[in-house]
């Protein structure tokens, strides 16, 4: 058995490709003449290119969305714009994801083609057992032509499909992701939509149909509470007179059990702050209970900010 030192010497003497001054000069000459060096880099990875392009697209889109959201927020029209942004985002995010997947596919394909070309250029010479130092563009093209004769399409198809599947899965996961872990169930959302519609049409009968007999609307700030009759005879006529309108249509969030939910909306106010000297009224919390199998609003607690 040989010593480790001898083994190391033999291994590296045999395996390390030494570079001579002539090699360096030749490479410099090739660069000056703009010929293609053989030692092309192989750091281009299609998968990473796809991931990077996908992420960059998403990040870029996120930046635009954040910018738009910020602009909308600065308008001061609380409620309307927030809802509009949420709606816009919900409708167009699919298109953005398609764009991101398309960009990722394009990046992967281009990178793969470049990488294939690079690999062709750096193949070992079979009769020398050593990597060539460099070669001309003409030689590279000749090799590339020879390689084209080999069928690479199956690999291309597999790569494209793989990227597509990953993109679609990501899309599906994103699309299925609820806005919040506490996103309200459909049944609650439908109730809240009917409730809001009743308020916006000042229709006390419609409101009565979606609330419990003990329904109260309460304000912590004013220390007031109203039942359905007070709303019908006093509040609705007043609100109709000032053309009050509640634009909040969700998203709704809920915690609780199937028979009792505490529901709220994303931080947004109600248009018509002139209702009370610049006070912006907030929806606050709805208490929703199940009565004889149907969900009803039992209490609407709202608050206000100056």
């Amino acid at each position: 058995m040989s010593t480790v030192e001898r083994q190391l010497r033999e291994y590296f003497d045999a395996g390390v490709e030494r570079i001579s001054v002539d090699d360096v000069m030749a490479q410099a000459a090739v660069r000056e003449e703009r010929l293609e060096p053989l030692r092309t880099r192989r750091s281009l990875k299609p998968a990473w290119a796809a991931v990077g392009a996908f992420a960059a697209t998403i990040v870029a889109i996120g930046g635009v969305v954040a910018l738009l959201a910020g602009v909308q927020h600065l308008t001061g029209k609380v409620g309307v714009d927030a809802a509009a942004i949420v709606d816009a985002g919900g409708e167009t995010i699919g298109i953005w994801l398609v764009a991101a997947v398309a960009v990722a596919l394009a990046a992967a394909t281009v990178t793969w083609l470049i990488r294939r070309s690079s690999n062709n250029a750096s193949r070992r010479e079979p009769d020398q057992g050593k990597v060539m130092v460099m070669r001309t563009i003409e030689q590279a093209e000749t090799d590339a032509e020879a390689t084209k004769q080999q069928s690479r399409w199956p690999m291309i198809v597999i790569a494209v499909l793989a990227v597509t599947v990953v993109g679609l899965v990501a899309w599906m996961v994103f699309a299925m992701r609820p806005n919040s872990p506490n996103a309200a169930p459909t049944e609650v959302v439908e109730l809240m939509e009917e409730y809001t519609a009743a308020w916006n049409s000042f229709d006390a009968d419609a409101l009565e149909a979606v609330v419990t007999p003990s329904y109260r609307i309460r304000s912590a700030r004013l220390g007031e509470e109203m039942n359905i009759e007070a709303i019908r005879t006093e509040l609705f006529p007043y609100l109709e007179g000032i053309e009050w309108h509640n634009p909040i249509t969700g998203p709704y969030y809920a915690v609780g059990s199937p028979d009792q939910w505490f529901v709220s909306t994303e931080g947004s106010g109600i248009e018509g702050s002139a209702f009370s000297d610049g006070v912006q009224w907030q929806n606050g919390v709805f208490t929703v209970v199940r009565v004889e199998g149907e969900l009803r609003v039992r209490e609407h607690f709202f608050y206000a900010e100056d």
């Binding site: 083994q7 033999e10 291994y11 395996g15 192989r42 990875k45």
Partner: peptide, 24 residues
Amino acid sequence: RYHRPRVLFPAIPVAEAPSVEPGL
């Protein structure tokens, strides 16, 4: 900047390095 190969130190033909053990 190069892609790191899976095998940093590939086996070398015995004729070129007769003393090298496979485990090196």
